[in-house]
């Protein structure tokens, strides 16, 4: 994750540069999830952390987390 002027960015590396062909700007929730993903975690664990940090209910947090995970999975930005 990179930071430009306070904005958090994901930059593709390796052969992914051609397929992603862009940069990904993370909002606060996405940045929180991305940082937590330094370790393997379940979706529920991530949603609980987001709900606590941003003072939102668990169900909404889980939807947001799953959306983010789906997007970065589509971009093949995660390795298990």
């Amino acid at each position: 994750m990179q930071n430009v002027g306070g904005e958090s960015l994901l930059v593709p590396i390796g052969a992914r540069v051609v397929d992603v062909n862009g940069i990904i700007v993370l909002n606060d929730t996405a940045r929180c999830v991305w940082e937590l993903l330094a370790q393997e975690r379940s979706v529920d664990e991530l949603a609980s952390a987001v709900a606590e940090k941003f003072d939102v209910d668990f169900a909404n947090a889980r939807v947001d987390v799953q959306t983010f995970l789906d997007e970065i999975a589509h971009l093949q930005a995660l390795q298990s």
Binding site: G22, I23, V25, L26, F68
Partner: peptide
């Protein structure tokens, strides 16, 4: 989250 091309000036 927003994915944008790098040439998005």
């Amino acid at each position: 989250m927003t994915a944008l091309p790098t040439d998005y000036s």
